[in-house]
């Protein structure tokens, strides 16, 4: 999987993931990750963002999951891979960072042992050389006194340090693609921004292609070039971070932006909320899944699911009424954002 291969780093076409035969967690996702790009997948719990991410490495439990569609990583077809090819893919070509490092790291081995194990699993390399690599990685993710920390167990480290160690572990085999599942959600505010900046820096320096799953728009804006907004297992809007945040065309994206308790809001005013709650994925209503909660829904929305349409080059939204949604956002945008708008 050399960088010289043409084509995108990850290409997902028509991905569907069904759990237990009934829960349609992912329902037709198309997503392209260009080389060297960072895409943020945004959505609320149950929107299918983590399931999509895990499908790229085929980490969802095989027996109760039915996957359809196509996933290509660096041109290779992930769906057709043998267990052996999958083992070579995981950690080597594609690496993952999880939300809770204390659960993702093995508590009975030192972090140094876990990193050297990962390196030696994929490469023919001596243990001293592997440890040297691990040490360099620790320095790279800026863990203080790295030599000593290599011999620490996960529970002996602070939350921010553990997340840095997990990033080092993910980078151990020089992957092309980095998948991050809510990497900063469990961290404190002052630590979260450090990790976000570290991820952005590593991505630029190592030329990584990154998919970053989060529910926090702010975190997405800090690291991502492009943002894809998911709702009920579908991507409802996708575009450059700038377009999605400053010039949204889907009513759900607009609702998310409006419901933020940001500084732009005057005290004492009510937050503009999205009414209701997400649909039951085992019992999908026909039509657009967001229609029951949408302020623009009309008859057609409840009958026929809208396809993704390009609203601008490189910016698509799955909505019958993108024009009306866009106009509603423009007519009622927060004054703080007005100056920054295109």
């Amino acid at each position: 999987m050399s960088a010289s291969e043409p084509g995108p780093a990850v290409a997902i076409r028509g991905l569907t993931v069904v759990f237990g035969g009934v829960v349609e967690a992912v329902d037709g996702v198309d997503l392209t990750l260009e080389r060297g790009q960072a895409v943020a997948l945004i959505g609320e719990s149950g929107s299918g963002k983590s399931v999509t991410l895990r499908a790229i490495m085929r980490l969802n439990p095989e027996r109760r999951t039915r996957i359809g569609g196509e996933i290509r990583v660096g041109g290779a077809d992930v769906m057709a891979m043998s267990p052996k090819a999958l083992r070579a893919l995981r950690g080597r070509a594609v690496a993952m960072i999880f939300q809770e490092p204390l659960l993702a790291l093995d508590p009975v081995y030192t972090v140094g042992q876990q990193i050297t194990e990962a390196i030696r699993q994929h490469e023919r390399i001596g243990s001293a050389a592997a440890r040297q690599r691990a040490l360099a990685l620790f320095e790279r993710v800026r863990i203080p006194s790295p030599e000593r920390r290599l011999d620490a167990y996960p529970h002996e480290m602070s939350g921010g340090m553990r997340q840095r160690a997990m990033i080092a572990l993910a980078l151990a085999c020089r992957p092309q693609v980095l998948l991050a599942d809510e990497p900063t959600t469990a961290l404190d505010a002052t630590v979260q921004i450090q990790i976000l900046l570290l991820l952005r820096e590593l991505q630029a320096e190592l030329g990584l292609s990154t998919i970053f799953v989060t529910h926090d728009l702010g975190a997405a804006v800090e690291v991502a070039d492009r943002i894809a907004v998911m709702y009920a297992g579908r991507i409802v809007e996708e575009g450059s971070a700038r377009d999605v945040v400053l010039d949204p065309h889907h009513p759900y994206t607009i609702g998310l932006l409006r419901s933020r308790a940001d500084g732009a809001l005057a005290k004492g005013t009510r937050l503009k909320t999205i009414p209701g709650s997400p649909p039951d994925l085992a019992n999908r209503p026909p039509g657009c899944p967001f229609a029951p909660r949408c302020f623009l829904a009309e008859e057609r929305c409840r009958v026929e699911a809208p396809p993704a349409v390009a609203v601008q080059p490189g910016h698509r939204a799955a909505c019958w009424r993108t024009e009306a949604a866009h106009a509603a956002f423009q007519g009622d945008r927060a004054p703080v954002l007005a100056d920054a708008a295109v």
Partner: peptide, 9 residues
Amino acid sequence: SMPSMDPDA
């Protein structure tokens, strides 16, 4: 430390 909501800043 709060993430900025402005892609240009």
